[in-house]
């Protein structure tokens, strides 16, 4: 059992939790993930590590309520326990040896982009962060990004905060203004990562994306998280989650991510109804 030591609502659908998991915290690095199970009958879901504190032995996770499991997780409070919490899994992001990097985060993906931006900064890179959200209410981690970025551009779809437009618009503008990046790191919805990768391919900038497909065990056992990268089959859990954005077959990944959409919607509804009825 893993105790929740802190809980904070970042926006109406995004929550931050710090979890007491000393063995995971001892090893965790930016780009890695954990697998959790909320309770005895719950499913296993992967969540990327948003931060860690080796001394306190805690791991920070940030999640958006999108299905039954995240709904149940969101109903847990400080001092309560998560049934299972395993990690750190996957390979760490490469964060050393860069001069200037553009870190792009979309929506809740910013939670994953943040530790990478922070690690890059700590390792001496100049970090330009571009973070995109649908609107002002959904903006998260602004202060955190400010601290670790030499330049921060906030984009919203409707222009209610920062600049109006997509993260790709901001990246294009920065490159056109003369910025030269060794690498672009894009973390967010599959569609965003796809279009960032298309743009950077045109611009000739190496690009790394963080894939978050459906998985069960997170240790290479189920093969559910398989992707096509450069024409080869890769498992996101053990070969990734970071991959060369110019080689990932995003269209296939988008199709694979929708396999259980209908069942998930129904299970989520049922779970919400349970909470509404006060049965849990």
């Amino acid at each position: 059992m893993f105790r929740i030591t802190r809980k904070e609502s970042l926006n109406p659908t995004v929550t931050l939790m710090e979890v007491d998991a000393p063995l995971v915290a001892r090893k965790a690095q930016a780009g890695q993930f954990i697998i959790l199970r909320v309770d005895e009958d719950g499913e296993r879901i992967p969540l990327t590590i948003a931060d860690y504190d080796r001394e306190l032995g805690t791991i920070t996770i940030i999640f958006q309520v999108v299905g039954a499991t995240t709904e149940k997780l969101n109903h847990l409070n400080e001092g309560e326990y998560i049934c299972d919490f395993a990690g750190p899994l996957g390979k760490a992001s490469e964060v050393t040896g860069f001069k200037k990097v553009a870190v792009i985060g979309g929506g809740v993906g910013c939670a994953i982009a943040y530790p990478t931006a922070k690690a890059l900064k700590t390792n001496g890179a100049e970090v330009h962060s571009i973070v995109g959200f649908r609107n002002r209410d959904l903006v998260i981690l602004e202060q955190e990004f400010k601290k670790v970025s030499d330049k921060l551009v906030i984009m919203t779809d409707d222009g209610s905060y920062g600049e109006k437009g997509l993260v790709t618009d901001a990246l294009k503008a920065l490159v056109e203004s003369g910025e030269k990046y060794d690498e672009v790191i894009a973390i967010g919805p599959l569609v965003m990562m796809k279009f960032v990768s298309l743009l950077t391919k045109e611009l000739g900038i190496k690009t790394v994306v963080s894939m978050n497909p459906i998985m069960i065990d997170g240790t290479g056992m189920c093969g559910g998280c398989r992707l096509t990268v450069g024409g080869e089959m890769k498992f996101a859990c053990v070969d990734g989650p970071d991959f060369d954005g110019h080689l990932v077959d995003f269209d296939e990944a988008i199709r694979r991510s929708s396999i259980y959409r209908e069942t998930e919607r129904k299970t989520h509804e049922d779970t919400c109804n349970l909470f509404k009825g006060g049965a849990v």
Binding site: I216, M221, C222, G223, G224, R226, L227, M233, R256, I259
Partner: peptide, 12 residues
């Protein structure tokens, strides 16, 4: 076609 939806490893 091995990455189509509905193709499982026996493990999964």
């Amino acid at each position: 076609g091995e990455n189509l939806n509905g193709v499982y490893s026996a493990n999964e």
